[in-house]
Design a protein around this nucleic acid. Structure first.
Length: 576
RNA sequence: CGGGGUGUGGCGCAGUUGGCUAGCGCACGUGGUUUGGGACCACGAGGUCGCCGGUUCAAAUCCGGCCGCCCCGACCA
């Protein structure tokens, strides 16, 4: 392709609205055009890269036995009502009305549509297993699109769904997809880590995310350098060390702690370490009920774990008024002596019954000491909470905490979620009636899995992970072109002939080459070459032509080599 | 949705105590001189100053409302 004919305008200055590397570089390299918040047009350079990514995805999916389909973006809302997600996904759904006033959804994902298809075509265990996939535009009305292509309202996703006649089959499909995903990301030149993930309110059991490690990532990850455990912070567990247990149980005692509404103040005043205090964190769920979380003073609450435990759709910090309404006092709250109605009590398993704790007394300026939760947690009628409280893990793992598997300290990092696989089980097949007849002639729900890859996200995260101060450094497999051919002093007829001839030769040989035949100065061309970041740069210039050589420079190399003109093609197409 | 910022040619910005044909750099066109790391000179094209309403002899500038975009948070399969 001749650059003089190509839709590609680079920018010297960085647009003010872009603040992540991928967004800045894609705008500067003339790859994308923003049309609205989170909505982009892909210009030729970006589109070529996307097509390469899609091709890799297709090859690996096909190799894993999946079959490609193409599903509609427009879905009748009834399908979403049937699965229960019309309400469940709420505001994220883009909705449109047709001329008759009938409501339709712009597909944010395709479980409903695919399940609808499969329930109409699969009858018997003989039709299974089946893995179907598509590459499609998805629409999500995100509360906040951001970071260029990393979180858009319209984006390209590869979504695959597996259908099996039992959980062993699902395991096999899941493993096949996991392997295909590893291959895809490796081929795309991405460094990823696979983490255990939260599968959300409607999810099944196993769920893993493929994360591109990058500082701009939205997700917080924890991993263990010694045993390999890795998880999204939403899901991560850790080893909770118990502070010294006590054999005796002194009676509970109220102590004055004026102005000590934080754990730090209370711990300092009473001379106890934070891990011997119990912190109360209060939320209100979508029904208006209060979710009362008790956790050891040195730990933070993981809201996702709380949400999952109570199957809450929505959780927000409770207001002071809501806290007082149940008889608790903000800053001095504990479950001791509060109302029971409308309160769900969550006790983190860091709170061990044999430890002597300090906790709030539900009275301004007072705390209790010598609190043993199994003995002292009682409501206002003196009825024990023990038995009706949820006692499990509600804590947020942090770097430095012990790995749940081997106990050594966990490390933290950030990642961009480029793939997510999980075992759905029979959630959709049951709600939507997708069944098959087993060998005994009995009707069974099909066991499903679903597997997503953010195709546009791969593009953005590849740039996020592979760039330097001058520009993009494309992983070769997804570079829009292989070679950036620079012609210098093309106004000299002899040089232009040489450059044109080299371009034609490479082009005929099937080497993807972008030929900078513009009338620009050397500096402009070299800087654009670095910005666009194709793997190889070739330079034809008067001094090279005189010597019968072409300058050959790999984007990642510090210096260029001079290669004999006749050897260029073989240098670019190594047979061995 | 809460907090913050911002909106002036394609991009980056100035101008905002009300005052003349709204400026600067980059990019763009024409001509000339240059030519290995973002050249120079000359001439030139390009703007409903986000939108609507108000105040005024006069509004990019003051007032009111609305909208877009960006960031933090909430949110988010």
């Amino acid at each position: 392709m001749r650059l003089s004919r190509y839709l590609l305008k680079t920018l010297r200055e960085t647009p003010a609205d872009a603040d992540t590397a991928n967004h800045q570089l894609m705008l500067r390299a003339g790859m994308v055009h923003q049309v609205a918040a989170g909505v982009y047009g892909y210009l030729p350079l970006a589109w070529r890269a996307l097509q390469k990514i899609e091709r890799i995805v297709r090859e690996e999916m096909d190799a894993a036995g999946a079959q490609e389909v193409r599903l509609p973006a427009l879905h009748p809302i009834e399908l979403w009502q049937e699965s229960g997600r019309a309400a469940g996904m709420g505001d994220i759904l883009f909705k449109v009305k047709d001329r008759r006033g009938h409501e339709l959804v712009l597909g944010p994902t395709h479980e409903e549509v695919i399940t609808d298809i499969v329930r109409h075509s699969v009858r018997s265990y003989r039709d299974l297993p089946l893995i179907l996939y598509q590459i499609q535009t998805k629409f999500r009305d995100e509360p906040r699109p951001r970071s260029g292509l990393l979180r858009g309202r319209e984006f390209t996703m590869k979504d695959a769904y597996s259908f099996d006649a039992g959980s062993e089959g699902l395991d096999r499909s899941y493993q096949a997809m996991a392997q295909a995903y590893r291959n895809i990301f490796d081929r795309c030149g991405l460094q990823t880590i696979v983490v255990e993930a939260d599968s959300g309110a409607i999810g099944g059991k196993d769920s893993q995310e493929f994360m591109v490690t990058a500082a701009a990532g939205e997700d917080e990850l924890l991993h263990c350098p010694s045993c390999g455990y890795a998880a999204n912070v939403e899901k991560a567990a850790f080893k909770k060390l118990t502070p010294g247990t006590t054999a005796e149980r002194p009676p509970r005692e109220k102590v004055a702690t004026p102005g000590c509404a934080t754990i730090r103040d209370v711990a300092a005043l009473l001379g106890v370490p934070p891990e011997r205090t119990i912190k109360a964190v209060l939320y209100t769920d979508e029904t208006g009920g209060l979710v009362f979380v008790c956790i050891r003073g040195d730990l933070e609450v993981n809201e996702v774990k709380v949400k999952n435990a109570f199957k809450a759709k929505d959780l927000r910090p409770a207001t002071d008024a809501e806290i007082r309404a149940v008889g608790a006092v903000p800053g001095y709250a504990s479950p001791i002596g509060i109302r029971r109605e409308g309160v769900k009590l969550a006790v983190d398993d860091s709170i061990v019954s044999s430890v002597d704790y300090v906790t709030g007394a539900n009275q301004e300026g007072y705390h209790y000491r010598h609190v043993f939760w199994d003995r002292d947690f009682m409501d206002k009628d003196g009825k024990p909470w023990l038995g009706s409280a949820y006692y499990q893990d509600f804590a947020k793992a942090q770097p430095g905490h012990g790995c749940p598997k081997c106990g050594l300290p966990l490390e933290g990092s950030r990642g961009i979620e480029v793939g997510h696989i999980f075992k759905l089980g029979t959630v959709y097949s049951e709600s939507m009636g997708a069944r098959y007849l087993d060998t005994a002639g009995q009707e069974q729900p099909i066991v499903m899995g679903c597997y997503g890859i953010g195709v546009t996200r791969i593009l953005a995260s590849a740039i996020e992970q592979h760039h330097d101060e001058k520009g993009i450094v494309w992983p070769p497999a997804i570079a829009p072109f292989r070679v950036y051919l620079v012609g210098l002093n093309l106004e000299q007829e002899a040089i232009r002939r040489e450059a044109d001839a080299l371009y034609d030769e490479l082009d005929k040989a099937g080497v993807e080459v972008l030929y900078d035949d513009r009338e620009e100065s050397a500096g402009v061309k070299f800087n654009d070459a670095d910005l666009i970041g194709l793997p190889v740069r070739l330079t034809v210039s008067p001094r090279n032509v005189k010597q019968g050589v072409v300058e050959y420079k790999v984007r990642t190399a510090a210096k260029a080599d001079l290669v004999e003109r006749q050897r260029i093609l073989e240098k670019l197409t190594p047979s061995a």
